[in-house]
Write a protein that binds this DNA or RNA. Sequence first.
RNA 1: GCGAAAGUGGCGGAACCGGUAUACGCGCUAGACUUAGGAUCUAGUCCCGAGGAAUCGGGUUGGGGGUUCGAGUCCCCCCUUUCGCACCA
Length: 821
Amino acid sequence: MERDKTPRAYDPAALEARWQERWEADGLYRPEPDPARPKHYALTMLPYPSGDLHIGHWYAISPSDARARYMRMQGYNVLFPMGFDAFGLPAENAAIKRNIHPKEWTYANIDRMRGQLRRMGTMIDWRHEAVSCDPEYYRWTQWFFLQLFAGGLAYRKRAAVDWCPSCNTTLAREQVIGDERVCERCETPVIRKELSQWFFRTTQYAEELLDFSGLDWPERVRTLQERWIGRSEGARVIFRTEQRRTEQGDPLEIFTTRPDTLWGATFMVLAPEHPLVSKLTTDDRRAEVEAYVEKAVHQTDIQREAADKEKSGVFTGGYAINPVNGERIPVWIADYVLMSYGTGAIMAVPAHDQRDFEFARKYGLEIRPVIVSEGQELPVPEAMDKALSHEGAMVNSGPLTGTPADQVYEKVVDYLEKNGLGRREVGYRLRDWLISRQRYWGAPIPIVFCPQCGPVAVPEDDLPVLLPDDIEWRPTGESPLKLHPTWRKTTCPACGGEAERETDTMDTFMCSSWYHLRYLSPQYDQGPFDPSEYRAWMPVDTYTGGVEHATMHLIYTRFFHKACRDLGIVQGDEPMLQLRNQGIILGEDSEKMSKSRGNVVAPDALVDRYGTDTVRAYLMFFARWDQGGPWNSKGIEGTSRWLRRVWNLYMEPAEGTGGDTTKLRRKLHQTLHRVTADFAALQFNTIIAALMELLNEMLQARPQLAGTPAWDEAKDLYVRMLAPIAPHLADELWHELGHRDSIHLQSWPEVDEEAAQNEEITLVVQVNGKLRDRVSVPVGLGEDQLREAALATEGAQRFTEGLAIRKVVVVPGRLVNIVAG
RNA sequence: GCGAAAGUGGCGGAACCGGUAUACGCGCUAGACUUAGGAUCUAGUCCCGAGGAAUCGGGUUGGGGGUUCGAGUCCCCCCUUUCGCACCA
């Protein structure tokens, strides 16, 4: 038939290059702030310029682009920018390994990746590109640091910090991964070091960070953040220590979530690093205590873990007084108590806490139950689970003995507060953000250390504090900033005397906490962003990216936004309203992609072979986007076939014999309905499936309906629906239909609800819940008519024969279930 | 150990509010066109049984129980997998 006329063949390579050039020349994707239209800021997490755009980048970016394009067709003024998170260790590692300057390496990679990104056929507006290692970018990263510093949110503190011996730098707590406590980047086990470092007060925002109201974020990310922040309600209680030499010793504060069990505290435990340890230790215990402290402090955490989690500790010889009953209880130290949580000290209630219980058993300390379940004598150690509950009544608890356990908490805390022995307190697992890095390739912390004035902020006018280019790499892996002969030497901005620069740089998560703001006006030099652009675009409406950032970037950027809000720099409580995560693409062997496994999918090769549009479409189709899954190199053939069939449908001349167009129009508008809903919900795989179905329907209808107005309508709408997915092909087909302007300037079509309506429905006839027949009936029949129609079917007759009909359930528009027996 | 999510054909996956399970695609089978095809087109393809066939009957959403006229979907128990956290007082 028409096939023999061999229409122009689909040649994605030529067609895609042509359209990309034309879009660029026409400035098709350059939104300007427009108060007349609703805005939509579509943001996708920016890549690190590692060298090549890999399939994971494509998976994150191209469906996000399709969604942004859809929003644009829906009438939104859409900003979809891109940039590079360009500071970081890989550049330094490359420098050491290949003797190439990090700057050179980074910018070469960015150039390469920009080219690869352009092949993707996105609507990225490159006028908004921002690169975090540009001096004009990190000038403002430093500026933000100074604002936080001035606002009291950045501070320097000497503390035990996590140190990666391979990367030669400190890490934020979030960057230490898993049971083995390894570096998130190189997987080297992390060690502890005592250092003076810069921190941001993220903990000050712990409570607010738990509030997700108004945010459309995945449950999963919210849960991860909630757990990471780790709120727990309890009380701070002041014990008194009893020291050998002084009668009244120092106060010893503890945090507990179970003040109701205060009468069950039979000993105290301090973290080995606790400041009171030395004072409390008696002479006869000193040698042993010091040995234990020495071991605990200098041990790496991994070694601590390796001790099979069996508790260990030593008695200090000191005692403390329980404020509620005046009892004198021994003070121990043990490494299961962490200096970094609460006050670094606990009251141990072995009868009602698993950890204290294990410790008490090992060292033969008293276990005294204070809550007993009804009907139970006293909890035996084997029944700890029961004993740990709040249920039951108090025993051994002085004036509260006999009180139902669930009433005690409030009574105890009231009592403590009234008598100055403690107060309600909320504890958080979240720590302040350690931002110092002992590395070269990062934004220098704009601080000068003056022997007279202490740490002094570099004046804003002197920003950026530039990285020196003439650097030297030593095999020790130490920061070249520290080794530079002159860079650190400067004068104090306050007194003018000789002073030294901070040689640490900032965690790159600092750079990425505000990139969405720099995108708005990357050339702006009066501030980090142009306020009028801020008003036009912020907040981010849809943010897409990997879930691996749930407890790092996504907490930091929220903190950063809230801190800046309180400093008067930005408005609103949250930077990103809607968040969606894509899954991970595995290799064909269902394993994580890696060069060593040889299962890496190279997008460039796929684009060469199938074209960008096919790769984009397949990425949307092959799995649920939020789940990802193993790659299938055969599967992409199906998507490729689909687009070729679409192409042929438009290119092959066809003349129909005429016929009823109702069915085609119904399918068309039902498809439009589905596709619209699925784009809104970022459910890409079902969009493609729906379009494939519609194509099949159109191909079937073609011999009759080609040339009818309904046929032309279908062709028109099909291109519009295809436009966000396969933008090049769609524009080509659009022009083939005789249009002169771009499909990407067209609007998203409206569903013709009437056309989408079914005239007839297939009524399902069940007998006792089993499918027995189907009958086609006009839509809108009443229950009685449906019942009759169903009862009249052959299947209903046959399966109810000889049975009494007890009940008939009619579900209008769907089915009739005949209950017979 | 704690927490979260998920278990549907050979595979990736569909299924609105509890209402025709397996859409769409891959793969596979048969056929057509071809010198050829890893191109294209057509038909078929959850499992079991009966029949030459159209068709007919039974079963099926990890396993077991429950609610309901009706359960992939809701409830309870169990199993498995993946991810996250890991002495947080």
